[in-house]
Amino acid sequence: MEMVLDILSWVFLLAGGAFCLIGGLGMLRMPDVYTRLHAVSVIETLGMGGIILGLILQAGFTLVAAKLIIIAALILLTAPVATHALAQAALHAGILPKLDHDKTGGHIAGEDESSNS
């Protein structure tokens, strides 16, 4: 039983670390702000989830596990808010994303047509 738990938490910790590294690599390789947001969301969901899950398996059914669950829930609740605020602020500051396909027809929700030069 102990053995199985150890192997499982090895797997989760390694997967979490690997996803963190992938996200960091994406941070360096992506061409503009909006695409880097996607790399960060990989870190903040899968990397964080893998590492916290591995730690929970090591902690067992204790207060430490409860605190780890609270940390995971808080990150999952706050990460999209921060990401959305960043994307909106970048758009309002006039940084336009590099697009291959623009399906909005130049119309962005919440903006007047006239202000969209």
């Binding site: 969301s41 899968l46 999209p80 808010v81 990401t83």
Partner: peptide
């Protein structure tokens, strides 16, 4: 909107 943002690969930029 939060589900869209939380899923890697899609980010909600603006909402009205």
């Amino acid at each position: 909107a939060n589900s869209i943002t939380l899923t890697p690969g899609t980010v909600s930029v603006e909402l009205e």
